[in-house]
Every structure is written in structure tokens, then in C-alpha cells.
Amino acid sequence: MDEVKIIEIKKSIFADNQQDADALRKELKAKGVYLLNLMSAPGSGKTTTLIRTLNLLKDKLHIAVMEADIDSDVDAVKIQEATGIPSIQLHTGGMCHLDAEMTRQGLDNVDLEGIDLVILENVGNLVCPAEFDTGSCRNAMILSVPEGDDKPLKYPLMFSVCDLVVINKTDVMPYFDFDLDKCKEYIRMRNPMAKVIPISAKTGEGVEAFADWLLAEVRNWKNQ
């Protein structure tokens, strides 16, 4: 009879990623590069918001963008055309999230010399990206009005890992029963430290506040 030997492992599959992410953050700090991990559900307005925001920031910061679409480069091309900012496509190999190793591989394809800010547009998904630290300095997410004010209750992990929640498409607020105060309260229940900025990427309302937040974040990262 074969005897079965048991080898105890007790290791979370997220453990290695956490180490990789912490190492990446340290390196970015040494280089003075600020990496923002931007997450959201599909179609919340990440690309539209980025175009508006980057046009406000591009004279003040040197910026690069990494787009993690599963298999198209539509967004990378759009951003580059609308802002002139270099934008690369990250290959996720069909994965529903980016991990720190994939982020590092993406960064290897960006010329970081003189770059202050890199924005990573993560895979459109409110579940898996929240589980994997990418090595970014901060996490931000975009929640759009048509998705509903109760999303912080349904995706608590996503909201608890984000330092900033941008609420987009405020121009359509009159057509949806989206209660901004209630939404802010739900976000605070999950994450008392999160900052909330309502914007309309369509009209441009509030976009300046997001740009100011980013600018202050980048300066702070370099100086602290």
C-alpha cells in the first residue's frame, strides 16, 4: 500500500503578490514615480475621465498611461490621440485582474526617465482587482451614477481598498434615483478614510478637483 505523506503549507495565494507589490512600491518611491491604480466596472467612464484630467495636468507633470484591456488597444489609442500622452497596452492574457508582476512587466515597457505619474487603467471589474495589490502608490475607483448608489454595499472590498472614489456622470443624476449623500455614507461605512469627488467627465464639472488631488498626491510622494 502506498502511504500518503502530508506536507503542511498554509500559504495564501495572495502572499507572493503582496511581497512583489511592496517591492515595486519601494522601487517607484526611489525613482520618484507615482503610480495610480484606477479601477471600475466596464463603461464607468475611465477613459473619458482620464482624457479630461490628463489635459489639465500635462503641462504640470510628465505622465504615462498603461491600459489593461483584455484584448483591444482602443483605449490606449484614444488616450494617445486625445492627449498626446504616451499610452501602452498591457496584455493580461485573459486574466480578470492585474497583479504586481504583470504591472512590473508593463512598467518595463514604459520609459520612466523623467516621468512623474503613471496611471494604470485596470481591468473593468469590481471584484478581482480589489484582491490584488498592483504595487501602486494609491488605489482609486470610478463609480458612475447609472450603476447605483448601493455599490459600496455590494462590493465592500473594492471600496475598502480605495483611497479615492470618483463619482462620475453626475450630469445624468436627474434621470436616476442616485442619492449622493447616501452613497457617501455607504462608502464611509466601508472606508472612513476614502475621499469622494463627484465629477462629470462629459461636462467637465468637478474634474479640476480630481486633477488637483492627483497633483498634490504626486508632489507629496516625491517630497515625503
Binding site: 502530508i6 503542511e8 503549507i9 495564501s12 495565494i13
Partner: peptide
């Protein structure tokens, strides 16, 4: 929310 490898089994023949 755990996703953990608890142990591995090896047949000792």
C-alpha cells in the same frame, strides 16, 4: 475570503 494552500499530499512508495 481565504484562498490558501493548506497542504500537499505525496505518495510514498
Amino acid at each position: 475570503r481565504e484562498v490558501e494552500i493548506k497542504e500537499i499530499e505525496v505518495k510514498d512508495n
